Computed example of a mutant assay.
Amino acid sequence: MKSPKIKIKIFVLGLFVFVAVFNLWSLRPVKIIYTSRQMEGSNDVVVNHFPLTDRDRVHWYLDHKEELLEVYNIPRSTDFDIVIWDVADGFVNLEENYKHDLYCFSDMKVKNNCIEKNMFLKIKLYKYGKEVFTVGYSGYSYAVDKEGKLVAERDEELFHKMRRTKG
């Protein structure tokens, strides 16, 4: 039987390794894999290595808003949706993966034009200027208030819908 001091040292070492690995993983840059405009006002961005937390996801978008406009011409209108998707295991063929819940890009002229539906972030800009961020399927939306702070708002309808489908 190990002494309490050894158990504490093992625990602290394990915790240190976990934090170090997590920090290294979180420092990987987000890579934009593909962008698409399926219809006017609707924009899709497929990424790899997106941040883990709601706050970091929204702040990534806010920090890269100008880049999306300048480099990818997203968005092109003043009333828009942007959905940021996880590339996960890459693009797949719908015919070979028809049992999966896929999101396909009709503007891609290759057979592997679908990804698994894993939405990281949805940004909606309304005509009156309010920008709303919905993170994944969590049931939470965020907006930036007048002081520049991120304010959370629970979407009760979405939250209860997701609870019903999970169990």
Rank of each mutant, 00 (worst) to 15 (best):
F50N: 05
W60G: 10
V71S: 13
T35M: 07
R57V: 00
E40D: 14
H64Y: 12
V46F: 01
R37F: 00
W60H: 08
H59S: 10
S42T: 10
E66G: 01
L62G: 02
L69F: 12
L52A: 14
E40K: 10
Q38D: 02
T35Y: 06
R37G: 06
T35F: 07
I32V: 15
L69A: 15
Y34N: 05
S36Q: 01
N43G: 03
L62Y: 05
N43K: 10
Y34W: 13
F50K: 09
W60P: 09
L68C: 06
Q38K: 02
E40V: 09
S42P: 00
I33N: 01
L62E: 08
V45W: 08
T53F: 06
V71H: 11
V46Y: 01
I32P: 00
T53W: 03
S42D: 13
E66R: 11
H59D: 12
H49Y: 14
I33V: 10
V46Q: 00
S36Y: 00
D44H: 12
L69R: 15
L69S: 15
E67N: 12
Q38E: 07
E66F: 05
L68I: 07
E67H: 09
S42N: 14
V58L: 04
R37A: 07
D44T: 02
R37T: 13
D63F: 04
V58Q: 07
I33Q: 03
V47N: 01
F50H: 07
I32Y: 03
V47S: 05
R55V: 07
K65T: 12
L62N: 07
D44Q: 09
L62P: 00
R37E: 15
T35E: 06
D63L: 05
H49L: 03
R57Y: 01
F50Q: 08
H59M: 15
V58Y: 08
K65V: 03
E67C: 00
Y34S: 05
D63C: 02
L69I: 11
G41H: 02
Y61E: 04
D56E: 14
L69E: 15
H49N: 15
H49R: 11
D54K: 03
L62D: 04
V46W: 01
K65R: 11
L52K: 11
D54H: 12
T53Q: 02
E67D: 15
T53E: 08
R37L: 06
E66I: 13
R55W: 06
H64K: 14
E66M: 10
F50C: 07
E66N: 13
F50L: 10
H49C: 04
T53A: 04
E67I: 12
R57M: 14
M39H: 10
H59T: 06
E70L: 12
Y61M: 05
Q38S: 08
D56Y: 05
R55Q: 13
V45I: 15
D63Q: 14
S36T: 02
